[in-house]
Design a protein around this nucleic acid. Structure first.
Lengths: 300, 300
DNA sequence: CCCACGCCATCACAATTTCCGAAGACGCGA
DNA sequence: TCGCGTCTTCGGAAATTGTGATGGCGTGGG
């Protein structure tokens, strides 16, 4: 028994004629006749009395008709529900962060996602460039913010802005910082995040360029921890410009550093995933950039 | 969308593998794959994530699964309900009577029908042989009791018993009935039912055989009315033997009359109608006769 | 590090089902 | 008795569905 049997059953019961039911269902009358016959055979009952005036429901048919309608309604509920879901994203998206929410414009991103996809659960997970990249690779994150050049062909990378870096210094060390020569600064204690963080790379590049090495280092594997360490006077560190504006406990040294790009990454193979597309659309709106052109668009 | 799409959907959701679902559904893996693909296309949503380990429901699929189950359940409810109905007769059967219920053994017939077909409504409609026959012909009755020979090729006739006839006379006329010669009796008033009743035919035959005619007649178009008329002293009449046993108001005259057959009739073209078959089965059980062999029996 | 395994998608072709138009059977009404 | 409208049946055509083989892809063991 298939749905078309039931559709025909209901149509014939309502039209009381195979001919009219056939017209309503855009098919031929023998086809309708065969449907009814097949249905009667599989059900083992007679649904209609055949009269010269048409088809009249038997008491058994009368009794089965509402159930057939119910089955059709249930099937059409599946379709209708699916229609309502087809442009709606449900489930959850996990986005890895690598710095503070303000700078990443998270509230605007969240607002845009919430507005367009109210049933989408958005998880903003703190992390760092170093932890985000593998997380995206293995699917623990759907996408992530990262800083620095990414050289991974499996990743799609979306440039958001350039992030100027400065050397941040604690106010408590101001007396000891008499020169902004890198070699002199290298003799002071340093704090940095993790080796795969772009700030670390910038620091390495800085010291390598001046052929020197910082005396002592301390790892803080999260950016706000790094900033707190600097404020607390543990040592110098590389931070985003502006972090220490109007800060009592730390300040920025006037040393020229190359800026690093802030980027948004996700697995290239998911670039046509509606979830990724939705996030990218909102992200690009927030950052005022063009969304990457899709490789293939499917008909809805 | 057809039911097999939903069946496959549910099977794959439960088995989490196309291969296993194919085994469960006794078909091939590409067929299952095509079902899911087609369903996803008609619904416009992605139901499964394809992983190297198998198929995993998407949130959308998760949401649609219970509805798909519901639709399948509704469809299978149709089948189940039909199974329950397939040997059950529902609706109503209309049986025409032509004489009293005791003689027709109606209580036993009713009991048998009620026991085997509790949902069958049985209508026992009083009438006479003359009114029952056309009612059966045009479908106002499904079957009927009649007396006398029936010569109608469109009717199936089932003989039940011979009905001996007697002349019933009112006790109040006993003094006037001095002879049982038909010619003498003809001078008395007579009551009979209707011209197409077999009792009437018997009376005509009686008088024709003796070349005489009753003086006065009165028509009562129902048998119990006839009997009451006789009791009331209106006149003589032909009744079934035994009606006036132990009766104070009427008695039977010792005049030899031919007996007439009591029969049960229905339209010949309905002899394989389950309703007719059911009634015949019960009727034959009650009367201790063999049911007529069916022309064709269908597989249940 | 590579290969073998299990998974699903795709393809061309075969089997089945479904569909169509024509013809037949049947009862009704003129 | 004939015409009309109904449903059923029939043969062949069309569409759908199913099959087995093949390929891509990621995973896990050697």
């Amino acid at each position: 028994m298939e749905l078309y049997h039931l559709r025909t059953f209901v149509a014939v019961a309502e039209e009381k004629h195979l001919t009219r039911a056939a017209e309503r269902l855009f098919t031929s009358q023998p086809a309708i006749s065969a449907h009814i016959k097949a249905l009667e055979e599989t059900l083992g009952v007679t649904l209609f009395d055949r009269t010269p005036k048409g088809m009249r429901l038997t008491p058994v048919g009368e009794e089965l008709l509402p159930r057939a309608r119910q089955a059709l309604a249930a099937a059409s509920a599946v379709m209708q529900h699916a229609k309502g879901l087809q442009d709606e994203l449900i489930g959850s998206v996990r986005i890895g962060l690598n710095t503070d929410a303000r700078f990443l414009r998270l509230t605007a991103l969240q607002a845009g996602l919430a507005e367009h996809y109210p049933r989408l659960e958005v998880a903003m997970l703190t992390g760092s460039t170093g932890t985000n990249l593998p997380a995206v690779r293995v699917g623990k994150l759907d996408a992530a913010f990262v800083t620095g050049e990414i050289d991974d062909p499996s990743m799609s990378v979306c440039f958001l802005c350039d992030e100027p870096l400065v050397i941040g210094a604690p106010a408590s060390l101001r007396d000891q910082i008499t020169s902004t020569e890198v070699a002199d600064l290298a003799r002071l204690p340093w704090v940095y995040t993790s080796p795969d963080c772009s700030h670390f790379a910038a620091m390495r590049a800085l010291f390598d360029a001046h052929c020197c090495e910082p005396t002592r280092t301390l790892i803080a594997n999260q950016e706000d921890a790094l900033i707190e360490m600097i404020r607390a006077g543990v040592g110098l560190g590389i931070v985003r410009a502006g972090v220490f504006s109007d800060d009592e406990q730390a300040y920025e040294l006037p040393v020229a550093l190359p800026s690093v790009p802030l980027q948004f990454v996700y697995l290239r193979k998911r670039e046509n995933d509606p979830l990724i597309r939705a996030v990218m659309d909102q992200l690009c709106a927030v950052w005022g950039i063009e969304p990457p052109t899709a490789i293939a668009r499917e008909a809805g």
